[in-house]
């Protein structure tokens, strides 16, 4: 999409938003619909998939600019063609648009070493519910000019702004990766995680639980001799029974993606308790990324969700009413204790 067409499309969105009366919303900005349930009754989709295209990809500065409706996989392909990948590592192949990825605020399992998704977005452009322009950040990695709306709107689910353009950080494509795994009873997970915490952080940590047996998996980005050295170190640290496996490229996306199930949030300590609890149930199944606090389980927890995070708080409420007094963008009901992924 040329810059002029993009500008025209954005102007159109603005007109739609600022039209009072008529066929007006409230609207729910939409990408490819991979992450969201269909708009609730009375809410109209504002589909942004036409606003698509990678406008600039700078190999040296490791940054790209793309329109919000660009499919993530297409962005990834263009980056991969020059040996780069989007930061942080995310499960590709799950579809969706760049704007949808950003607006749904998906977590990367690699956050502890790479930063969260919100740390990878360098700048954002968009419109408020009343059609006023939003701009924050830019194409440089360090930027404290004005409020950090780039982070604020990450995860805003189309309820605070329509995202039109994003500046995203890139990095070198990792070569095939390694994982260090250890199988143990659910009651041993705490000890394993403690042992891991005393070692240099792996790129990501994942725990798979199935009927009382757990596998603790640590991912290390591979290719370089130092990665094997670190894998050896982790293997020693995890104790007898730990193994080193290679993760071929095509296996990386499933490694990073949470399977379907009930989504839960908890801290590391909370997850240890939860896995011990699930371990006692014969049908207990869970996939957990303990370092970023999220996981999916087969069954809802017996007690209340461990660490439910509602959709925003006082600040979000006030900003919403200031930016969108007429409520032209949809209001996701809150709090949302648990999110069910399709």
């Amino acid at each position: 999409m040329s810059v002029e067409t993009a500008t025209k499309s954005i102007a159109l969105i603005k007109r739609v938003l600022s039209q009072s009366g008529g066929p007006t919303g409230p609207f729910m900005p939409a990408g490819l619909g991979t992450r969201s349930a269909p708009p609730p009754p009375g809410v109209e989709p504002l589909t942004l998939t036409a606003l698509s295209g990678v406008e600039d990809l700078d190999r040296d500065e490791l940054v790209l600019t793309a329109l919000a409706g660009t499919p993530v996989d297409r962005v990834a392909q263009e980056a991969a063609a020059v040996g780069l990948v989007l930061c942080p590592l995310i499960p590709l192949g799950t579809g969706g648009t760049l704007g949808g990825l950003y607006a749904s605020g998906s977590e990367s399992p690699c956050a502890p070493v790479e930063g969260h998704l919100r740390d990878a977005v360098l700048g954002v452009e968009g419109l408020t519910g009343s059609g006023a322009p939003i701009k924050s950040g830019g194409r440089v990695v360090k930027n404290v000019t004005g409020y950090d709306l780039t982070r604020f709107l990450c995860g805003s689910r189309g309820a605070l702004a329509v995202i039109t353009r994003l500046h995203w950080r890139l990095r070198l494509l990792p070569t095939d990766s390694i994982e260090v795994v250890i199988d143990c009873p659910a009651t041993d997970v705490g000890a394993r995680l403690r042992a891991l915490r005393a070692l240099p952080d792996p790129t990501a940590v994942r725990i798979d639980l199935n009927a009382g047996r757990t596998r603790v998996r640590a991912l290390i980005e591979g290719g370089r001799p130092s990665a094997s050295a670190r894998a050896e170190q982790l293997k020693r640290g995890l104790g007898p029974g730990a193994e080193i496996l290679s993760v071929p490229d095509e296996q990386l996306a499933p490694w990073l993606a949470p399977p379907a199930g009930t989504r839960e949030h908890a801290s590391v300590r909370g997850w240890i308790e939860r896995i011990e609890e699930l371990g006692t149930q014969s049908d207990g199944v869970a996939t957990v990324f303990p370092y970023i606090g999220v996981g999916t389980t087969s069954a809802p927890p017996a007690s209340a969700p461990l660490d439910a995070i509602p959709f925003g708080g006082e600040i979000t409420r006030r900003v919403r009413s200031a930016w969108d007094p007429e409520g032209r963008l949809w209001d996701p009901h809150r709090p949302v204790p648990r999110e069910v992924l399709s």
Binding site: H116, F152, L153, H265, T316, V319
Partner: peptide, 18 residues
Amino acid sequence: SRSGATAGPDERGLFVGS
């Protein structure tokens, strides 16, 4: 949140640098 994850707008991120 304690785990650093945010569901919904990143109010934490807005406050930092304000």
